[in-house]
Design a binder for these strands. Structure first.
Lengths: 143, 143
DNA sequence: CCTTGCTGTAATAGAGGCTGTTACAGCAGA
DNA sequence: TCTGCTGTAACAGCCTCTATTACAGCAAGG
């Protein structure tokens, strides 16, 4: 399966909000963000909704509406973003229950659950080491 | 998206082959494995094909055909299995190229590539710490 | 050499997720 | 009240995954 791009889109949004804030622009509309990501504004609004529910961005309604970061970019790590936009575990279990009369079928799911848990923890720990501010710094190196 | 179960199926197969070998059964057919996993034998044969191409199992053709492990279960780690059955990177990049006239659009992909690379490495390192023999031991604890 | 049983793979179908798009009600600042 | 943007539903197209049927190919053993 082609991996989804939700984390990429969300980090792109947050990085762009961080840069805009640094440049003195407090609010960005979903249209403005969509112009940088190069996709439809509804895609951006859906992602911003996830980020808002996670407390990472705030929205202002009415005329002159727009979005801004809810915390300093140094205080938002990619693990926060991952939790905001990803719902599925990394590895799926069997679609149908394995044969419980086979010793392997009976015991494999808890055994795999342990291994998968350790693997996800390693991934999460690494994602917790990079902030949106870090991504912004590295992004600007290319320019 | 619901995560796929390819790694789960493949590890189940290998664990079952390891247990059968320990019990003195040298060869298992895809039908026998399918009975434990509780799925269609073609699903099993497809997974076994991946594992064969990766050098983790060997197949015997003709009458009395079947499958066996190509290495000791202690010598097969879940990272080997992961590489045998997973083709896609963990995180997808933008579907459409971001706006290169925006500093974020221009620089974000290499920046994200670095972060994603570190995260995948952490995951792979952890998957390299568990062998099929380990999974078999933990599986049999339940029985 | 031929029967037999299993492999290897193509073709197909259903289910579901992701992206992209249109449409529109709701909200709040001016 | 006007205006511009948000929030979300609805839908389409595409793709992947699982499952299933069908069948050609292969080799061991008689």
């Amino acid at each position: 399966m082609a991996a989804n791009s939700r984390l990429t889109i969300a980090v792109h949004i947050l990085t762009w909000l961080a840069l805009a804030h640094r440049r003195g622009t407090e609010l960005l509309t979903s249209d403005q963000v969509a112009a940088s990501v190069n996709t439809n504004p509804v895609i951006i609004r859906r992602s911003l909704g996830d980020l808002r529910r996670a407390g990472l961005v705030t929205v202002r309604h009415g005329a002159g509406a727009g979005w801004s970061l809810a915390r300093a970019p140094e205080e938002i790590v990619l693990l926060d973003v991952y939790d905001a936009v990803e719902r599925e575990p990394l590895f799926g279990m069997h679609h149908t229950e394995p044969n419980l009369e086979c010793p392997v079928g009976k015991g494999i799911r808890p055994a795999l659950g342990d291994v998968y848990g350790r693997a996800e923890l390693a991934l999460r720990t690494e994602l917790g080491r990079t902030s949106v501010a870090d991504v912004l710094s590295e992004t600007l190196l290319v320019n």
